[in-house]
């Protein structure tokens, strides 16, 4: 498989939404953890590129600030909470969808969006 030149590719963000139990992320099934470790290689194998990956602590640890008011919990309460995201490069939306389909997910699903901008100034 030839490596596509970078300027013919578009950056996408794959947002992962999961139904999180009280023990999240400790109870993420081991096969999902293992698949996550191999996901970078899989993306490259399928002609894409992995730019970044972000895993979040559980939504229960979130703090929301709205109009200056500080409250507990995530900004939007939903059954499936944002659990993490990948930034990857793909040829087009169909390619991005085919990569996003392989994203290891415990119980929820993913959303694909084109990336507008990404700045990383320092390693966390």
């Amino acid at each position: 498989m030839s490596t596509p030149s970078d300027d013919t590719m578009t950056s996408y963000v794959v947002l992962i939404y999961e139904q999180q139990s009280a023990n999240w992320p400790a109870d993420i099934p081991p096969e999902v953890m293992q698949a996550s470790e191999q996901f970078d290689d899989l993306v490259v194998e399928q002609g894409g590129r992995m730019v970044a990956g972000i895993a979040l602590e559980s939504a229960a640890t979130a703090t929301a600030i709205r109009g200056g008011m500080v409250t507990d919990g995530p900004f939007i309460e939903t059954k499936e909470a944002l659990a993490g995201l990948y930034v990857l490069r793909a040829r087009d939306l169909d390619h991005a969808i085919s990569l996003a389909r392989m994203t290891p997910v415990a119980s929820g699903g993913v959303e694909v969006r084109p990336l507008l901008d990404l700045q990383v100034l320092e390693q966390p």
């Binding site: 578009t10 996408y12 040829r91 087009d92 939306l93 169909d94 085919s98 084109p114």
Partner: peptide
């Protein structure tokens, strides 16, 4: 344009 929806016949699997 933004999501780069391809102008192509989909892959056989799709």
């Amino acid at each position: 344009a933004a999501a780069r929806i391809p102008y192509a016949v989909p892959a056989p699997a799709d």
